[in-house]
């Protein structure tokens, strides 16, 4: 699809807003519909759109597979890390109330961080699945 100029221009226009919307869904999940899973998928959709229109090589330059696979593990580590920190602070595993003195803030921050972990893992996994399929097709 490399010669489709309308697709190229429109997707270039859309991709920043898709990424921005993903971040909105990610960090507004406490107040409105959404959360880490949805945000991660939308974030990955921006990369997949880029890959569909511009090809596999450009998307591999933006998100190198060896980096993406480590980022996928990082998300799980962030999530589990919050649980371990809560334990070190004297609470139960994943008991956010133990994170800070003020309980409401502790819950809020704990949820924000674990949602970020979910979002990171989901986005990275979706991007790497897409790259794996696209690389197969290209015979690389």
């Amino acid at each position: 699809m490399k010669r489709q100029s309308i697709l190229r221009v429109v997707s270039k226009l859309l991709i920043p807003y898709i990424l921005l919307f993903a971040l909105y869904v990610q960090f507004h999940g406490d107040y409105g519909p959404g959360g880490g899973f949805q945000a991660g998928v939308i974030f990955a959709a921006a990369f997949i759109l880029y890959g569909l229109v511009f090809g596999l090589e450009p998307v591999r330059r933006v998100a190198p597979p060896e980096v993406v696979e480590k980022v996928a593990a990082l998300g799980v580590l962030v999530y589990a890390g919050v649980g371990v920190v809560a334990m070190l602070k004297g609470g139960n595993f994943l008991d956010y109330s133990a994170l800070e003195q003020h309980k409401a803030h502790a819950q809020h921050h704990g949820i924000l961080i674990i949602e970020a972990g979910v979002g990171i893992t989901v986005a990275a996994v979706m991007i790497s699945i897409f790259q794996a399929f696209a690389a197969r097709r290209a015979g690389r």
Binding site: D30, Y31, G35, I111, V122
Partner: peptide, 21 residues
């Protein structure tokens, strides 16, 4: 937090969501 769905997924059922991730 205002979104009950997020509260259930991320806090009340935090173990489940870790498992899903």
């Amino acid at each position: 937090i205002p979104n009950v769905v997020t509260a259930v997924l991320a806090s009340y059922r935090g173990y489940d969501t870790l498992g899903e991730t």
